[in-house]
Amino acid sequence: MEFGPHLMLAVLEGAVTAAVLALMASGLSLVFGVMRVVNVAHGQFFMLGAVLAWAVSSALGGGAVGFVAALLLAPVIAGALAVAADLTVLKRVGYDPERTIVATIGLLYILQQAALMTYGPEARPVAPPFNDRLALPWIEFGPEGPGLIWPWGLSITSYKLFVMGAAAAVLAGLWALMTRTGIGLVMRATQLDRETAQAFGIPVERVYAGVFGLGAALAALAGVLIVPIQQAHYLMGGDALLLSFIVVIIGGLGSLGGTVIAALLIGLSDGIVSVFFSPTLAKILATLLVALVLVFRPEGLMGKAAR
């Protein structure tokens, strides 16, 4: 493939990765920002979203109806499960940082093995509601001036465009929720100072449960969006968690804007580097970036220094 179309394909592929990653990492970042809880089970909520999407859409006989139902139901179910986990586990250990890490590791294995026992080891597909292949043109400067050509393989599907759009819309909604609504105000107050917020009558424990549920719902939504592209599999949460951590560390824990920027950075560089060099190099660079950020700017690109 020529360099130009090749680069365009890499950027498009990277953008899909970035969109899903941004959704997922924003959930992780939100939970850490407000609750100071490192949710190691976050990747499993992503997996749960994908698996529930399969369950819901196959129960409704597939098709667009099944997918839309999955898009609405899966995040709600995953969120409800997370709220239950928060109330029964995290609250009991008093949101102590070390103990919550161990508790969420336990949650990780419970969710993963429960999926293996009920859903099974196969990767199962969900049909996208629409999936037209859109061949993309490329401008080539020939002897008769610029002209459009249609390079071999340069294409995207309408569904992948939808994933990017949906992720952008949800992130914009999340930003509006955090900055423009009373719920957001309460969350930010809890984030700033838990005890003072409580003194002002904010039901901190309910906020915590809600935030944990919302974080899980965002991961599950990312899972639903990815499943028509990548199938649901009980082990899919592992890599997703690792990438989310990378994104959140680079972007700055608790910073939504930084998370989005870091997701674009990681998603696009993963797409481009792995196309032109090797996927291993892309992983090396991402990990190196994390190390550099931790050394030179531990609060992340957009994070605020600890008070």
């Binding site: 493939m1 090749h6 394909l9 890499a10 592929e13 196969e122 990767a123 597909p125 071999w152 393989g153 592209i229 990548q230 199938q231 599999h233 082990l235 899919m236 797409g271 792995s274 196309v275």
Partner: peptide, 24 residues
């Protein structure tokens, strides 16, 4: 991203994959 590396002159694709991502 890997398919982009397939040369245009290719007449036959020979593929063999294993693991959970085969359908993708």
């Amino acid at each position: 991203k890997y398919f982009a590396k397939i040369p245009r002159e290719t007449e036959v694709i020979y593929h063999v994959m294993v693991g959970p991502s085969v359908l993708t």
